[in-house]
Amino acid sequence: MAEKLFSLKDAIGTFVSDDDVVALEGFTHLIPFAAGHEIIRQGVKGLTLVRMTPDIIADQLVAAGCVNRMVFAFTGNSSVGSLYAVRRAVEAGGAGELELEEYSHYGLLARYQAGAAGIPFMPVRSYAGSDLVKINPQLKKVASPFEEDVETYVVPALNPDVAIIHAQRADRQGNIQSWGILGPQQEVAFASKRTIVLVEEIVDDDVIRSDPNRTLIPGFVVDAVVECRYGAHPSFAQGYYDRDNDFYRSWSAISKDPDRLESWIQEWIHDAGDHRGYLSKLGDGFFDRLTPVPRLSTPVNYGSVL
Rank of each mutant, 00 (worst) to 15 (best):
E262F: 01
D223C: 11
G273C: 04
I254Q: 10
H270W: 08
E227M: 10
D211E: 15
F236G: 01
D259G: 14
P212E: 10
F247R: 00
H233S: 05
I208C: 10
R249P: 01
L216Y: 08
G239K: 07
R214T: 11
H233W: 07
D206L: 12
G277Q: 07
S210L: 01
G277E: 09
I217N: 08
D205P: 01
T215L: 04
W264H: 02
R276H: 14
N245M: 10
G273S: 04
Q238H: 13
V221M: 08
Q266R: 13
C228F: 06
S252R: 04
V222K: 07
D244P: 04
R209Q: 13
P218N: 10
E262G: 12
Y240V: 15
H270S: 04
D257P: 12
D257G: 14
D242M: 12
R209E: 15
R229N: 09
Y248S: 02
D246W: 03
D271S: 01
D206E: 15
R214Q: 14
Y241G: 12
I254A: 04
K256M: 09
S210Y: 07
R214V: 09
Q266T: 07
I217D: 07
R243K: 13
R249W: 03
S235G: 03
I254Y: 05
S255W: 09
S235H: 09
D259M: 10
E227C: 06
D223Q: 08
R209C: 02
D242I: 03
R260F: 00
A224S: 10
V221G: 10
V207K: 05
S255M: 09
P258R: 10
F247I: 00
F236W: 13
N213V: 13
A224L: 03
D206T: 14
C228D: 04
C228Q: 03
S250L: 00
S263H: 12
V221D: 02
S252T: 10
A237C: 14
A237L: 11
L216T: 07
G273K: 02
G231T: 11
S252E: 15
P212Y: 11
S235N: 14
D257K: 11
I254F: 09
C228K: 02
D271T: 00
N213L: 15
E262Q: 11
D246Q: 05
W264R: 01
S263W: 03
D211T: 09
G277N: 14
S263Q: 13
